[in-house]
Amino acid sequence: MKHSLWIAVAIVALIAGVWFYDTRHTAPPAPEPTRRLKPPPPSFYDPSEPDPRNPTSPLARTLNRPDHSAQRDLEIVYTLLFQTRQFVKDLPSRPLGTNAEFTAVLTGDNSLQLAAIPPNHPAVNESGELTDRWGTPFLFHPVSSSETTLRSAGPDQQLFTDDDLVYPEE
């Protein structure tokens, strides 16, 4: 009797082992991993923390904040650039083409040292470029010395795709 019990236990264990082996080797393949986007950087000020760094530009604090739209971010940058141009009259003599060149002006590298955006704003990356809420540098498009349009690459972080955001809207 005791011998039969051991035989039964062995048979059950064998069946369970075969079933487990079979299950593992017939499971459908795991789906292809999707392209990993860079995680969104903390590109906005946390409103719960007081920010002594830029008392003169409250608009800059709202850049990339999650409680408003990404389109609003473009409008904010556009407005800050417009306001800077109102005060810094010699900007047309300054060569401005790349994001880093515009960001330098916006963060105080201008004849008045007027910083519309503080240089240590979380949206300014290590290359000195102003980034959107997904961490991609904005595209500054100089139409004239007094007008620059803006483009964000959007959630896919690729410029000139369908999810891009443009300001002023085309």
Binding site: S93, P95, V143, S144, S145, E147
Partner: peptide
């Protein structure tokens, strides 16, 4: 000269209209 800003550059360099 360009980098030292020691030369007069075209106004609105890199912009379309200018």
């Amino acid at each position: 000269q360009y980098q030292a800003e020691s030369v007069i550059l075209p106004l609105g360099l890199y912009s379309h209209a200018d």
